[in-house]
């Protein structure tokens, strides 16, 4: 049987790095900022987390340092896009290049070293998986049921209106970018510390880009991010399990499926927004647009 508890556990573990990164990007995009540098943030988290875990022997410290490193790198993006009003698409791409290059240069001493083991948590599942799952309702509550979340969404929907109401658009966005960077960094560290147990350059292998797809699939909603991470993780796990069970699967064609599904979801969301007006799960109104307060 392919669809069993084992598959589910595999899927949840495989989905954890992209879930963290996607949750982070949900926060960033809900604040109206498009950060395409997730891959760069993840790889920096992967190296920083691994290095810290190796130096201290504590994986918890590793994840903490990864969060700090991810937030730190994200600050470059924040300063450029929020203070200097640079184009977010270009800045995000530069961030990815910079992160990949920087980690390849400074990661050399950590090649070929093994990470300390991640302690197993309740039900034999490690704490990071639990944390990832717990963050989903927490972020949902934070976004939808708190004043801070309301302000963040307001900034993302219409920054001019939010500004007129006296909210600090720039500060809110910088905070969101930092949070997104921290979560992406932890997602990256999960790959190096919990999955591979080693550092090798380029090890995130495109996970950051998948996280970006998931955010769209999710309709900018944390629960959707969980579903998206499981869909993307699930397709990978499922095709591998089908293969292991001796079923010939068209791997490349199957691996296109989640991206096509993402486009479909995006179209459905957008169509509802365009034709029916309203309803949840729409793209933040100010997504990707720079904000400049004239007074």
């Amino acid at each position: 049987m392919i669809l069993d508890v084992t598959t589910l556990l595999l899927l949840i573990s495989a989905a954890t790095p992209i879930l963290f990164a996607a949750l982070g990007e949900v926060i960033v995009e809900r604040a109206g900022v498009l950060n395409l540098g997730v891959e760069g943030l993840m790889i920096v988290g992967a190296l920083a987390g691994f290095a810290a875990a190796h130096a201290t022997g504590s994986t918890a410290l590793g994840f903490a340092v990864a969060a700090v490193a991810g937030a730190g790198l994200a600050m470059i993006f924040a300063v450029l896009t929020q203070m200097l009003l640079t184009n977010q698409v270009a800045t995000g791409l530069a961030l990815t290049l910079f992160g990949l290059g920087l980690t390849a240069m400074f990661g050399k001493p950590y090649e070929g070293i093994k990470a300390p083991p991640v302690p197993a948590g309740p039900l034999g599942v490690n704490a990071m998986i639990w944390l990832g799952l717990a963050l989903v309702p927490l972020i949902w509550l934070g976004l939808n049921r708190t004043r801070a979340g309301l302000i963040l969404r307001g900034v993302g929907e219409n920054h001019d209106a939010a500004h007129a109401l006296g909210y600090k658009v720039r500060a809110v966005r910088i905070a969101a970018i930092a949070a997104g960077g921290a979560l992406a960094g932890m997602g990256g560290a999960y790959i190096s510390i919990a999955i591979v147990l080693q550092w090798t350059e380029g090890m995130t292998a495109g996970a950051g880009w998948i996280a970006l797809a998931i955010v769209v699939f999710a309709g900018w909603n944390p629960w959707g991010a969980l579903a998206g991470a499981w869909l993307f993780g699930g397709v990978t796990v499922l095709q591998l399990r089908l293969q292991a069970a001796g079923v010939a699967v068209p791997v490349q064609l199957l691996s296109m499926a989640p991206y096509l599904a993402t486009i479909l979801v995006l179209v459905l969301i957008s169509a509802r927004q365009t034709y029916a007006r309203g309803g949840g799960g729409t793209a933040p109104g100010s997504l990707g647009r720079p904000f400049h307060a004239l007074r």
């Binding site: 084992t6 598959t7 595999l10 573990s13 495989a14 790095p17 790959i191 999955i195 591979v196 080693q198 090798t200 090890m203 995130t204 292998a205 996970a207 990978t236 796990v237 591998l240 399990r241 293969q243 292991a244």
Partner: peptide, 13 residues
């Protein structure tokens, strides 16, 4: 690495 880990896990399953 991540894909290889998943592949190993699928085999173990």
């Amino acid at each position: 690495p991540a894909k290889e880990a998943d592949a190993a896990a699928a085999l173990i399953a």
